[in-house]
Design a protein around this nucleic acid. Structure first.
Lengths: 233, 233
DNA sequence: TTGATTAATTAGACCGGTACAATTAAGATA
DNA sequence: TATCTTAATTGTACCGGTCTAATTAATCAA
C-alpha cells in the first residue's frame, strides 16, 4: 500500500479510536511528518484524501480539524468503497434473484460503451435494511472485463473481487439520480404501492483507464432512502 | 488568483473551445509545464482539481483524457459554484417570495450551529426551468456571518456576493437527500398533486474555517429533477 | 480591561528534483 | 504475421526545501 494511503487509514482509525468529535484538532503537520517519518507533501496528500472523503478540513494558520457529519442513518454517495462496505453498519442482507449472462439493454450498452451483441453479466437482487426492503438493484457488468462471476462473489463484495481477484483498478464513477413513481412490479418488490415515490440511482463505474465496466441501477424505497454527499466547491 | 486555479480554468476553456470529446487526449504534463511555465507539481495540482470536478481523468503511462459525461439536462451536485452559475445553461429564472430577518427553525439552528435566539436571513423562492417550476428553495443564512442581504443580491448570485462582496471564503458543503411525498402546500407551489414524489436536497455550506453559514432546503419537482454526481472512490 | 500592534504558529503554494510504475511503441524472434 | 521482449513515453509517489498567507498568541499602549 502507498504511504499516503496508509497514513490516511491510520488517521481515520485514530479519529475513530479517540472518539474525536466535529471540530476537534488533529496533530499539526510537523508532528504528523515526524510521527510517520515522511515528508510534508506525503502527509498533505493523505490529508487531501481525507478532505475529499469529508473526514477532516484544514484551516491555514490554525490546524487540521475533524469534520464528522453527525446525521445518522444516511448512506454515503461518495467514498463508495463497494456498496457492501458502505452499508455494513446498516446490517444489510440481500437476496440474489437473478445472475446470468445475457445481451445488454440499449441503455446498458450505451453506458458501458459496448455493442448490443456483446455479453454482460446481469445481476438482480433486493437489498434489505433493518428487516425492510431498501432497494432493487440491477447491475450489468461488461463480460470482456469482468470475465467471471458467481453467486458467492456477488454475496460478498463484488468490488473487492474485481480489485483483488481480477486485479483491476477501479477509477471513478458517474452517478445519476432520478425521482419518479413506482410501477406495479417495483411496488410489489418493495412492498409499496404503485405510484409511490421512488429514487433511481444509476452509476457507471470506470477503471482507472477510463473503461466503463459496470452499469448499475438502484431503485430505492422512498421510506428508507437517506443519502449523504460531500460537495466539491 | 492562484497559479494552479488559473491553469485549471485555462484547460477547461481549452476543452470547451476545441470541443474535445470524451476520451480525447490533452497535452502531456511536460508540455503543460513549459506552456504555462510552472513546475510539475503545480500542473499536477491543476489536474487534480479538474479530476475532482470530473472534467478529466489521468492514466499513468498513457496521458490525460477528457471525461465528458454526455447526458443532457442534468444538474450537477458537485462543483457547486453557486446555484445560479450551475444552472445558467438551463435558463432558470426565479421569483423571490420572501426575504426577511427572523429566528431560525430548530432544524436550521442545529445545522447552522446557532441558538434559537440568533438572527438569520430567511429567503424563500421558486425556481423555474423551461417555463416550468423546478423547485421551492428555502435558505437560512447566519446573520452574524452574512451581515446583509437584499433582493438584488439574491436575484444575482448570493455565493458571488459572499465571496466578492463580503470577502468570505467558502470551504465545503454537506448535502443530504430525501425522497418523500409532497404536502398540500408544496404541491400547490409546484403545480403538482399532493402525495406526488418529491426530492428534498438539504445543504449546509461552511466557510473554510468550518463555520456553517447557510442552510438550504430545496424541494424538487420530480418531473424535472435530474442530478449528476461524480463519485469519489 | 480593552484594543491595537507585533510575533509566533501553522497550513498552503510552489519549485525542482529522483525514483517508480503503467502504458505504449519499437524491435526482435519465431 | 503474430508474439514475445525491450525500450521509450508518461503520469505518480515521494523528498526536502523556500516563501507566503491566515490564524492565534503575546506584547504593548491607552
Amino acid at each position: 500500500m502507498l504511504k499516503y494511503q496508509h497514513i490516511a487509514d491510520e488517521l481515520e482509525n485514530y479519529i475513530e479510536e479517540q472518539k474525536l468529535q466535529q471540530g476537534d484538532k488533529l496533530p499539526i503537520l510537523q508532528d504528523l511528518m515526524t510521527q510517520f517519518d515522511v515528508s510534508k507533501s506525503t502527509v498533505t496528500k493523505a490529508l487531501d484524501l481525507l478532505e475529499k472523503k469529508g473526514v477532516v478540513f484544514q484551516v491555514r494558520g490554525s490546524g487540521i480539524f475533524v469534520r464528522r457529519h453527525k446525521r445518522q442513518g444516511y448512506i454515503s454517495l461518495t467514498s463508495n468503497q463497494g456498496f457492501k462496505k458502505n452499508l455494513e453498519e446498516f446490517q444489510i442482507t440481500s437476496d440474489v434473484i437473478t445472475l446470468d449472462i445475457r445481451k445488454p439493454t440499449k441503455e446498458a450498452a450505451v453506458n458501458l460503451n459496448i455493442s448490443l451483441e456483446d455479453d454482460v453479466y446481469y445481476v438482480k437482487r433486493i437489498r434489505f435494511i433493518h428487516g425492510q426492503t431498501l432497494c432493487i438493484e440491477e447491475s450489468y457488468f461488461n463480460k470482456s472485463i469482468v470475465t467471471y462471476l458467481n453467486k458467492e462473489i456477488i454475496t460478498e463484495s463484488i468490488f473487492n473481487y474485481i480489485t483483488e481477484g481480477l486485479g483491476l483498478n477501479i477509477g471513478f464513477a458517474d452517478t445519476y439520480l432520478h425521482v419518479d413513481k413506482l410501477n406495479a412490479e417495483e411496488a410489489e418488490y418493495l412492498g409499496l404501492k404503485k405510484d409511490d415515490p421512488k429514487l433511481e440511482v444509476e452509476s457507471v463505474f470506470h477503471l482507472t483507464n477510463g473503461q466503463p465496466f459496470d452499469f448499475s441501477k438502484l431503485t430505492y424505497n422512498y421510506v428508507q432512502s437517506q443519502f449523504f454527499l460531500q460537495a466539491v466547491l
